[in-house]
Design a protein around this nucleic acid. Structure first.
Lengths: 225, 225
DNA sequence: GCTCTATTAAACATGGTGTTGATTATTATG
DNA sequence: CATAATAATCAACACCATGTTTAATAGAGC
């Protein structure tokens, strides 16, 4: 009676799914599972691009992925949980960048800027975003999932600004500082979004330089091109 | 046979719905329609806040609005069309601000800044946003409609930046200028979003001043509080 | 090769959707 | 106030997606 129970067991909060792409080896997923999830991921991207995140059903998803609908339900409870699990992977990966961020100081930024060098951290970040480009393009586009952009802003941009902000103001609860942080966090999210929307034409180095240049510019000033 | 056809006729693209709130008088809507739509709007806001934009059905909507489900379908084809019609109202209203924007120059901004006066245009904008606060809070929040923020950014913020940008760069297709505009457009959208999320505590004048101050600040500089 | 398990296929109850026709209630208008 | 117009209600409908369950098949791992 309880024999086949494990088949119905759905991984709590996508723990297993995080092993999928960057699989270190330990606790490797069954090839069939990996294949199915990969096909579903690709189908999801295509369908979001074509019809927007709410413009298709689980049926459509499985048709695109050339899988039985039951297979989908073996792994995910519903469409949203599946989407969230993929988003979680990205956010989890970005945690790694967050720890780099906390080590970053305003002084570092200035030093690299004076040497006309892009911050390696930023280059790595744009490299990673490019790696996930197809998914990000779908999910951050017009038909994508608005929640993800908010998470990305909090996961990366807000922390980025906080870390390079002068220590005095970093945890200052003044309303202006609050808006100051929101201002720049959203600003950098906007740059990233724009880059992804436009097909990521610029190289990661170029983008890192642009990001740094934007940090040191004053809006009212004339731009030296 | 074609007698009752008019009851099923749904207004093409929410033309009639735009008369609802700010009704100038001409072609006034039937009171019953206005009442129904108002109830639906309020129900929508409550349900988005409670369950997110995809967390409820047309059934729920009508239960909250205390209306028959048929009434909803008399006016709208589906949930999304209804939501879009409400968003369109806001965007249409903001068109008025857009024309003010095109008249705005960088010089104006500096002049007001030197006199420590907030731009009347900005005060009006924040006043209007507050007026629509409950809807905006729902639709721009975590459970809201991500598409709307994108529209708001394009309708207001991008134009705002373009108009105060130096003429030389305004229509400059350089990649950097492109990102420059995205940067500041998203930045100001972020400030607006933050203000709305936080319950719009600051007055419109205060927000206008903060917005102007953020325009003249250089990120790397220390902030004078 | 043998065991375990993922995929498939079919069936099912459930619930939301969008539409329709007839009835009732409310509104605008003369 | 009386009347015509029309909006809201109610019940019923076919349709489709959902999420679950079963048994059979196929494939992975060892």
């Amino acid at each position: 009676m309880a024999v086949l129970v494990s088949q119905r067991e759905i991984p709590r909060n996508g723990v297993t799914t995080s092993l999928k792409v960057h699989n270190g080896g330990a606790l490797a997923e069954d090839r069939r599972i990996a294949r199915s999830k990969k096909a579903l991921r690709q189908a999801l991207i295509e369908l979001i691009e074509e019809r927007g995140v709410d413009g298709f059903t689980v049926n459509d998803l499985c048709t695109y992925a050339d899988l039985n609908r039951g297979t989908f339900y073996n792994h995910f409870h519903d469409k949203d949980e599946f989407l969230l699990s993929l988003e979680d992977e990205i956010i989890d990966d970005l945690e790694g960048f967050r720890v780099q961020l906390t080590r970053l100081s305003f002084a570092d930024l200035v030093r690299y800027r004076l040497n006309s060098q892009p911050l390696p951290f930023l280059v790595d970040l744009f490299d990673y975003l490019r790696e996930q480009g197809d998914f990000l393009h779908a999910v951050m586009g017009a038909g994508g999932d608005g929640r993800f952009s908010l998470r990305l802003r909090d996961a990366v941009c807000t922390n980025l600004i906080r870390s390079v902000l002068h220590e005095r103001y970093r945890n200052n609860p003044t309303p202006f500082v609050d808006y100051y942080i929101s201002f720049y966090a959203s600003a950098y999210l906007g740059v990233i979004t724009r880059w992804i929307e436009n097909g990521m034409n610029e190289s990661s180095e170029t983008m890192a330089r642009i990001a740094m240049r934007l940090f040191f510019i004053k809006p009212g000033e004339s731009i030296e091109l």
